[in-house]
Amino acid sequence: MDNKLPTIKEIAKRLNVSVSTVSRALADHPRIGLRTKTRVQELAKELNYEPNAQAIFFKQRKTFVIGVILPYIREEFFSQAISGIEKAAMEHEYTILFGQSFDDPEREKKVVETMKKQRVDGLIISLSKQTQNYEHLQALEKFGIPVVYFDRVPPFEHAHKVYCNLFKGTVDMVNWLFGRGYKRIAIINGPEKLPATKERLNGYIEGFSKKKLKVDMQLVENTDLSKESTYRAVKSLLASKNPPTAIISFNDYVHMDAVQYAQQQNIQINKDLVFVSYANLPITSYTAHPPLVSIEQYPYGQGEKAMEIMISILNDKIEGKTGQQVVYYNEEMPATLVLNQQSLL
């Protein structure tokens, strides 16, 4: 049995027409008559003809593939984000090529290089927690590969970004705690080099400033996001002469580790010591002590918006608008306080 896939040449030979006529008929070109177009399309259907994707990509200089790099797919935040990315990609007939950095800058560079070799049309990325050098990403512009950052975005202006305003969200969170009588408010922040960490700290300081109070830096701790590091941060806070009555955790995973350590010290969660957090991930609703209040960061929406921006950039490229001065997309999404009713019971 001949298992060879049918080609345009075979269709042209059977119908005694030129290859270019078949190609145009399959593309529904207006210069091809209805009778010829119908004959070509019916035979193509009969032979189960499929267009040669590689040939089309070569002609259009596009692969219709977008690279996506995330720190960890196992984290619910990023799994939601990639669902939003994929949904928007499919709506525009793009597929995604996915990779993980595992929060390692060197691995991130290797994945970026792989994406480049695969000739992706664009790259969407949430940076690793230790990324400080962005040359491997900025270099993609030389190859005509646009980059859209989301959630963990770089600190410079000339970049396409989608992110939540965590500065304002943190100010609102501090204000919410003060309004309920919590004065000793601590924060377990993230890795010091991460821009999102600085954003949270600035919001934390601003929240105190609005109350005309100075921040007690003994109430500020950092974690590298590992359980051991978070344990050390909580231990340090609880050992202070005037321990906190409330703790803001960097994210819901840090929150769960912090609560676990506090429980080991026989502390009554959200009674002796209250916890609030970021991300509002559904997984916390399955825990005994979810955050009293959490900041919704809309990971699905961030991912979807990042892909929509990418499509707009690529469409501008097709229409020849890239020769004009580059306008960088800067999409700021709301950071909404969400009250957890279960924790208030």
Rank of each mutant, 00 (worst) to 15 (best):
residue 2 D to F: 13
residue 296 E to Y: 09
residue 90 M to K: 15
residue 46 E to R: 14
residue 71 P to C: 00
residue 180 R to D: 10
residue 15 L to E: 12
residue 268 Q to L: 13
residue 179 G to Q: 14
residue 290 P to N: 05
residue 286 Y to E: 01
residue 187 I to E: 07
residue 293 V to L: 02
residue 67 G to D: 00
residue 201 L to D: 07
residue 68 V to A: 00
residue 338 V to I: 10
residue 53 A to Q: 10
residue 236 S to C: 10
residue 243 P to T: 08
residue 16 N to R: 14
residue 212 K to S: 14
residue 27 A to P: 01
residue 67 G to T: 06
residue 289 H to L: 01
residue 15 L to S: 12
residue 168 K to S: 15
residue 48 N to W: 06
residue 144 G to A: 02
residue 330 N to T: 01
residue 205 I to T: 15
residue 255 H to D: 00
residue 117 K to M: 05
residue 320 G to M: 05
residue 105 P to W: 06
residue 121 D to V: 00
residue 268 Q to M: 10
residue 258 A to C: 02
residue 20 S to D: 07
residue 159 A to G: 12
residue 143 F to M: 09
residue 31 R to L: 13
residue 74 R to K: 12
residue 5 L to D: 13
residue 272 D to C: 09
residue 165 N to E: 10
residue 182 Y to L: 15
residue 92 H to E: 10
residue 274 V to L: 08
residue 279 A to I: 08
residue 296 E to Q: 13
residue 225 L to H: 12
residue 107 R to T: 03
residue 294 S to R: 00
residue 172 D to N: 14
residue 245 T to M: 10
residue 254 V to T: 08
residue 89 A to V: 05
residue 112 V to E: 00
residue 254 V to H: 05
residue 88 A to N: 06
residue 304 E to A: 09
residue 173 M to W: 11
residue 209 S to C: 13
residue 4 K to W: 13
residue 29 H to F: 04
residue 320 G to P: 01
residue 58 F to M: 15
residue 87 K to F: 05
residue 197 T to F: 02
residue 308 E to P: 05
residue 93 E to Y: 15
residue 245 T to G: 12
residue 323 G to H: 06
residue 195 P to V: 00
residue 47 L to C: 02
residue 259 V to K: 11
residue 156 F to G: 14
residue 126 S to C: 01
residue 126 S to W: 01
residue 263 Q to V: 06
residue 224 D to H: 08
residue 334 P to A: 07
residue 163 Y to K: 12
residue 118 Q to G: 02
residue 113 E to H: 06
residue 52 N to D: 05
residue 110 K to T: 01
residue 278 Y to T: 04
residue 68 V to P: 06
residue 301 G to W: 11
residue 280 N to I: 01
residue 275 F to H: 06
residue 319 E to M: 07
residue 268 Q to V: 10
residue 104 D to F: 07
residue 92 H to N: 07
residue 18 S to P: 04
residue 129 K to V: 03
residue 235 K to C: 11
residue 142 K to P: 01
residue 30 P to A: 11
residue 249 S to W: 04
residue 209 S to Q: 14
residue 13 K to N: 12
residue 32 I to Y: 00
residue 285 S to F: 03
residue 166 L to P: 08
residue 217 M to T: 14
residue 125 I to V: 01
residue 160 H to W: 10
residue 67 G to E: 02
residue 317 K to E: 04
residue 262 A to G: 12
residue 24 R to D: 03
residue 329 Y to A: 14
residue 81 A to L: 03
residue 224 D to P: 01
residue 256 M to Q: 14
residue 256 M to K: 13
residue 124 I to C: 02
residue 80 Q to I: 05
residue 264 Q to A: 11
residue 306 A to Y: 03
residue 91 E to R: 10
residue 318 I to V: 12
residue 79 S to T: 03
residue 135 E to P: 07
residue 8 I to L: 09
residue 180 R to F: 07
residue 264 Q to P: 09
residue 251 N to C: 06
residue 154 P to C: 08
residue 216 D to C: 11
residue 160 H to M: 09
residue 70 L to Q: 02
residue 198 K to H: 07
residue 136 H to S: 04
residue 210 K to C: 07
residue 42 E to N: 13
residue 141 E to P: 03
residue 314 L to G: 00
residue 34 L to Y: 11
